[in-house]
Amino acid sequence: MASPEQRARTARSLAVLDERLTHCRACPRLVAWREETARVKRRAYADWDYWGRPVPGFGPPDAALAIIGLAPAAHGANRTGRMFTGDRSGDVLYAALHAEGLASQPTSTHRGDGLELYGVRITAPVHCAPPANRPTPQERDTCRAWLTGELRLLRPTLRAAVVLGAFGWQAALPALAEAGWEIPRPRPVFGHGAHTVLPAAEGPDLHLFGCYHVSQQNTFTGRLTPAMLRAVLRDAARAAGLR
Rank of each mutant, 00 (worst) to 15 (best):
T221C: 11
G165I: 01
G149D: 02
Q105V: 08
A172R: 03
A177C: 07
P61D: 12
H75P: 01
A74K: 06
I67L: 10
Y212T: 10
R230K: 12
T225P: 15
L97W: 01
E36G: 02
L147I: 00
T37N: 13
G114R: 08
G222E: 08
W33G: 02
G76K: 13
P174T: 14
R140N: 03
F209K: 04
L14S: 03
G168N: 10
S108A: 15
G69M: 11
F209W: 08
P156K: 02
M1D: 15
A239F: 10
L233I: 05
V16R: 04
G52Q: 03
E202K: 08
L164Y: 09
D62M: 05
W51Y: 13
T123G: 07
P174C: 14
E5V: 05
P137T: 02
A74E: 07
P72K: 12
R82K: 00
P125N: 10
A172M: 09
H207L: 06
E19D: 14
L154I: 06
L151P: 03
T123P: 01
A77C: 08
S215R: 06
G222W: 01
G149F: 02
E139S: 03
G90I: 02
L206V: 05
P226A: 12
Q170N: 13
L208S: 09
Q6A: 12
G210K: 00
A161F: 01
A200R: 06
Y212P: 05
D87S: 04
R121I: 06
L173M: 08
L115A: 09
A71F: 11
A103T: 08
A175P: 00
A132D: 08
A2I: 07
V31N: 02
P54I: 04
Y212E: 14
L117A: 11
A161V: 12
G59V: 11
G222L: 08
H127E: 09
A46C: 14
